[in-house]
Amino acid sequence: MNSTNLKARRRKFKSDRQYFAYLLLLPTLLVITSFHVLPIFYSFALSLFNWDLISQARYVALKNFKILAYDPLFWKSLWNTLYYTILSVPMSIISALTIAILLNNKIKGIDIYRVIYFIPVITSINAVSIVWKLIYHPNFGLLNKLLSLIGIAPQRWLLDPKWAMLSIVVMSVWKGLGYNVIIFLTGLKNIPVHLYEAATVDGAGRWSQFRHITWPLLSPVTFFIFVMSIIGSFQVFAQIYMMTPGGGPMNSTTTVVFYLYKIGFGDFHFGYAAAIAFELFIMIFSLTLIQKLVVEKRVHYQ
């Protein structure tokens, strides 16, 4: 047995291990690269063409982006998405935080409440969209029936451009609420109890405790939910498709993703749809980046 032989064997062992590690990574890297990374570049390439997948693709340079800049329906869909976000994010955060604070009171039956508030989260958006479509029905929907009990005139909800988006927002907030409640609750549990005890000794009331302890210490969690909800809002599709299949009265519920779907998979304008997708990508990517940067900064600060 000589030392060079041993060295060679050790080296071989090491490189074998390295090759094996790459082998372990291969399936994941392959799938992620082909379906998540390359498509981003491909999307940009596609947006430079006019193509319906069947006939010859025609190179049009940046024309699709120029058309997009003057496309009233694209701006409308952008505004609708923004409107959805502005309505849903505060609504969801305020109600989720309220419920989480109520649940954080060492009360009986907390597990049961948690299960109940979480049920809409696990059910499929398609099935609950059908249920809410009936609830919003202008003639015999539950909502109008209940409102008539307290003397409020029936509305046409999903069929009324004034109400359609709000109706979808209310349903979506109801659906996603439990998720945010659980995250807020975890955040609340991480706030040291002795802070509240000290505040009580100092005579601070509930509101003042919330203002000076809960809210500031919860802010990283709130920020996380805030950004995740905005990103989620930019991707809303299923409930729009199910509840307002045409994109709503006067396109009032046509969001960016719905518009993208309509252009791409309804009209088969893949180049133009790719241009919309690219804009969407830039918007969501910047949001995610901002979140990462702010969170990173916070971590360093602490």
Binding site: F35, H36, L46, F234, F270, A277, L280
Partner: peptide, 13 residues
């Protein structure tokens, strides 16, 4: 990377 923005290129792929 947002899934929804990848629908079109993935479909073509």
């Amino acid at each position: 990377l947002p899934q929804q923005a990848l629908l079109v290129p993935n479909y073509v792929i």
